[in-house]
């Protein structure tokens, strides 16, 4: 049974999720990768306004491929999240960011921050860019067009499939899923 999530993604919604839950996200999410994260964190450090409001927001670690004519977006799967680990706590603590969608391991600092800020880390299927693109209804670059695919895109998604990897109690699907599988084949 998949859980439906609609943005804004509140602390109450986050608290209702457990590592391993399969979710379908609908609403607005923002893409940002390494280069955009650096600019956002630099703005926060300088006390300047951000190009969009991340309060109760979800950032999707992704740099989409260009859209073919007639399509809202090109292939659009997740990128590896650990590269954003040094920036994520600042965005959660200072900009109200609550959710992150990516793939792969996170640092202990990010896990601690997900717990203290009642956030959530989701994984989408890495390498399934064509499939995930089908849930994107509209795509608009709202900041840093010079960064090309690394620009911040505002995506409207409908039933975007993801899995809760780290919940706000600090449970980690990468550990739990592997342990359960290994126990099941013993």
């Amino acid at each position: 049974m998949k859980k439906k999530i609609t943005t804004p993604f509140t602390a109450e919604q986050a608290k209702g999720l457990k590592a391993g839950d399969q979710v379908l996200v609908s609403g607005v999410i923002y893409t940002a990768r390494d280069a955009a994260h650096k600019r956002l964190v630099d703005l926060i450090a300088a006390g300047e306004p951000l190009p969009c409001d991340f309060t109760d927001g979800i950032i999707y670690y992704a740099g989409p491929a260009p859209a073919k004519p007639g399509m809202p977006i090109g292939s659009a799967g997740p990128t590896t999240s650990y590269r954003m680990d040094s920036y994520a706590p600042t965005l959660m603590k200072k900009a109200g960011l609550r959710g992150m969608i990516g793939k792969g391991l996170r640092s202990q600092e990010v896990v601690d921050c997900i717990v203290s800020e009642s956030g959530c880390y989701f994984a989408a299927i890495g390498g399934a860019g064509a499939l995930l693109a089908s849930t994107v209804k509209s795509c608009e670059v709202i900041a840093y067009p010079d960064l090309q695919s690394e620009a911040i895109h505002r995506l409207e998604v409908e039933d975007f499939p993801a899995v809760v990897v780290i919940d706000c109690q600090g449970n980690d699907l990468y550990k739990i899923g592997r342990e359960e599988y290994l126990k099941s084949v013993k």
């Binding site: 989409p64 292939s75 064509a130």
Partner: peptide, 29 residues
Amino acid sequence: KGATARGVLADIIENYQRAERLEMPICQD
């Protein structure tokens, strides 16, 4: 053997089929 794993593999298969059908990249990278 893993149930979650089977679901992921099914999505990965659907993805490469969809990419071929729509002539779009299998992965955005």
